[in-house]
């Protein structure tokens, strides 16, 4: 019974990280109406950037974010400016195929630069520490990363619902044409949005790299988990994405109890079953 509770809690903590993967995907789908197939590969890219910084400086992974975050912002801004903006509004398939090509380029560039070997970010003492609550053991690192995920969701929700940039973003999400008429420069806005999306990716990537070994081809799986979180939560529903991530995390770890190789299988299964039973997602679509 206690071990089941432990699995449940660990599943929620893992799911919070998946939710953090999904936050950027949710934003690009909700506001820019595009899906970035390279989303998972950008998560892996962020982890490699952090790894390079950690190996060449005195910084630990978490403080490497001081450098990784601005770098990822610039990468996102440039990608949107140079590539994505040129194919947006044409038809929904063009951005998808373009980012598919980008995904292959990133994976193979990483392979060329860092070889196919797995590596991980040194978490130091954090990886070993745990706290015991009524007989249940919880790792400190998963707890911290879940905490950061909750903070990220609070921050993004506040930004979108309360700030002036947020109102422009909401306007574009609701009606791009009218937003343009009242003076919103959507292309410029999208470039900043993409930069911001990669800021969330940067945070997610460092936490991910500290928890799990990664390799150049780990990206697609991250994309799929993020995607499942977004769709389960209901499209355009930011907090829905958060809970969607939690469900995938719990399903994976409960599934792994049945058979260690079947963890992700049960995550996918829950996703498909929910899709048949409640195609609109588990949570009613609301304000992004």
């Amino acid at each position: 019974m206690l071990s089941l509770l432990e699995t449940l809690i660990n599943g929620l903590l893992l799911g919070a990280l998946y939710a953090l993967f999904g936050i950027g995907l949710s934003l690009s789908l909700g506001v820019m109406r595009m899906i970035n197939i390279a989303h998972g590969d950008l998560i892996v890219l962020g982890a490699y950037l952090s790894s390079v910084i950690v190996l060449n400086t005195d910084l630990d992974p978490l403080s490497s974010l001081l450098i990784v975050i601005p770098m990822m912002f610039v990468i996102g801004w440039l990608l949107q400016k140079l590539l994505f903006n040129r194919v947006m509004g044409r038809d929904p398939l063009s951005p998808l195929l373009l980012t598919f090509g980008l995904s292959i380029v990133i994976q193979n560039l990483l392979q060329e630069l860092f070889s196919a070997d797995t590596r991980s970010l040194p978490a130091g003492d954090l990886a070993l520490q745990g706290i015991e609550l009524g007989g249940v053991n919880i790792g400190v690192l998963p707890l911290i990363s879940a905490g950061i995920s909750v903070l990220a969701f609070l921050f993004v929700a506040h930004l979108i619902n309360r700030s002036p940039i947020g109102s422009a973003v909401r306007a574009v999400a609701d009606d791009q044409e009218t937003a343009r008429l009242v003076g919103v420069n959507d292309r410029r806005l999208f470039a900043y949005m993409a930069g911001f999306v990669l800021v969330t990716v940067a945070v997610a990537s460092v936490l991910y790299g500290m928890r799990t070994p990664f390799s150049p081809t780990a990206g697609p799986e991250r994309l799929i988990y993020s995607f499942e979180a977004v769709v389960l939560g209901g499209l355009g529903n930011l907090w829905g994405t958060f809970f969607g991530g939690l469900i995938i995390g719990v399903a994976q770890l409960l599934g792994a109890r049945i058979d260690t190789g079947l963890g992700p299988f049960f995550g996918h299964l829950v996703f498909l079953v929910v899709l048949i039973a409640r195609p609109e997602g588990l949570f009613k679509a609301g304000r992004a």
């Binding site: 398939l93 697609p220 799986e221 769709v231 499209l235 996918h268 498909l272 899709l275 048949i276 195609p279």
Partner: peptide, 21 residues
């Protein structure tokens, strides 16, 4: 139940779940 980009990535989930099975 899915459309456009969601359908696209959804089929990827199908491939993954079948591969693991």
């Amino acid at each position: 139940r899915l459309r456009g980009a969601y359908f696209a990535v959804g089929t990827w989930v199908l491939a993954e779940i079948t591969r693991i099975a």
